[in-house]
Amino acid sequence: MTLAALLARKALLILTITLLVASCSFWAVHLLPENIAMQIAAARFSGTEPNQQLAEVVSQSYGLDRPILVQYADWLAGTLTLDFGVSLVTGRDVVHDIAHHGQNSLRTVFWGFIAGVALAIPTGYVCARFAGSHLDTVLTVFSAAISTIPSFLVAIVMVQLFVVELGLATLSGTSGWARLWVLVLTIALSISGLLSRVVRTAVIDVRLQPFMLHALIRGVPERELFWRHGLKNALRPVLNYLPVVFMFLIYDVIVIETVFNYHGLGWALINAVKALDVPLMQGLVLALVLFYLCCTTLSDLLTWRIYRRKAS
């Protein structure tokens, strides 16, 4: 595949998904039996009983009395120009909220990913080199367990252990490393479980390949064998697996931020969902989806760069 084709394909995918999410949220809201204006009114002025009069005010101020297809087109156009409207709860621009919370999330996700990879690759490699040993068994059971247990349980245990029992971190206040390291560690643990399995399998598989043996026949010294012939081939399944890791990252952002009460995109999303703040919800979900898609695109580009073949 050429680079242009790859990029075009990815762009098409991103466009399709953006429109899918926007359509989903639009029609879900508009096909409801209850009046959307009533809901918005209820959500916005929670406390006072929503009534018809209030609903009409809301309806007019949000343009909800126009024909539905016009609203739909308007909604899609707004989404594509990254204009998600204003939050129904705070009245702030949704983009502003995304940028604000996104910064926080990006920090934990980035370091969590780096730490997770840094944890998974040596673990997987050691497991593969000593496959079948006690060390391998222990690490396998541990990583398999930690990757299958829902991350909210892992997060609760981490809070209990490091914050409540040992007092090594705080749950509020600063956004410095005193607080962040537990979050990063939790994210790293939750992604490294699966990733280390993949690394282990990839390394074992590649070491069993006939071309490794034949490289030895060609005289390649054993200590150089893996780095020369194994690495590039073992990396491929790991790179192919990255989208799954990114998906886990997105889930972790939501769950772990909620448990740690950390003000990032996930935390904001859960609050927006509870307040039925539709524009903010849609904006946050799209931000997370686009972040995920950008990550997978990057990993695809990396794969393409490493394994590209000249058109023959």
């Binding site: 997105i250 859960i270 969902v273």
Partner: peptide
């Protein structure tokens, strides 16, 4: 390619 949980979060309470 869509993270499934996000769709559920987005629509579950709205619906």
């Amino acid at each position: 390619a869509l993270p499934g949980l996000l769709v559920t979060l987005l629509l579950a309470d709205v619906l």
